[in-house]
Amino acid sequence: MSDGRLRQVRALAQRELDAVVRTRTYLVLVTLFGLAVASVPALGGAGGYLPLVLNLMTPVEVLVPVLAFAFGYQAIRADAERGELDVIRTYPVRRATYVLGVFLGRATAVLAAVLVPLALAATFVPLASQPAPSFLASAATVDDPIYYVRFVSITGVYAVVALGIAVAVSTVARTRREGLALAVSTLLVVVVGLDLAVVGGLTTGVVGPDGLGATLALSPASAFRGLVLAFAATPVAGASAPAPAALPSVVGLLGWLIGTLALATVTVWRT
């Protein structure tokens, strides 16, 4: 990437980050997300990192896409609707540069919004732990902060993927109303729809037990869940069944990220 492009990406990303930081609604949203995440260990009594991962897994699976969509669904559409996209197009900016810049700027905000509450939630574990009676030998259980750290990074990837989808939505939609409708329906599809489709596939026999692992990886939420079970909740997942294969999930998530950003690039404007 040439210096000029790098400068464009930086400027575009900076503009997105500033826009997020300067919009009070986003700050409220981030605060609510943070409270929701922090309330899980506070109310649920974590006691360990592994239980915390298990407690947070489902809320995060739902809330992170919501957060990413809120941050991303009108990132590009708002520029287009305002007419500013036309102005930007008269500058020597490539579509990929523009989409990348917008994506990186929003991703910065989303990642920070996800990371900080998750890091805070982890502090509940040592704060809330009960001292062991000194007369008893205390063995190392399978609990390990490593699992939580892994969970955080998987969550980061999941957030980025969800943001990619949201950014693609924001390029496809033409109007504010259309954008909202499209964002909400896409969000539903991502959070429950794809899993329902897989279940439907199982019911009708389209998907068999052999192909389930790969099919499930097509759903970002399931891919996220699969990775968490495989890497961040291994001892619990492994107790009843072999941990789900990680490769299809990784490929699935990367596919979604690249696919949605490519879609956004192609649809953002016609050359």
């Binding site: 503009r15 500033d18 826009a19 300067r22 919009t23 520029d79 305002r82 007419g83 500013e84 036309d86 102005v87 008269t90 500058y91 020597p92």
Partner: peptide
């Protein structure tokens, strides 16, 4: 940048 352009109803990001 060969062409500079002013749209009929110019608008900019309000936060800046």
């Amino acid at each position: 940048r060969p062409v500079g352009y002013l749209p009929q109803t110019p608008a900019f990001r309000p936060q800046f």
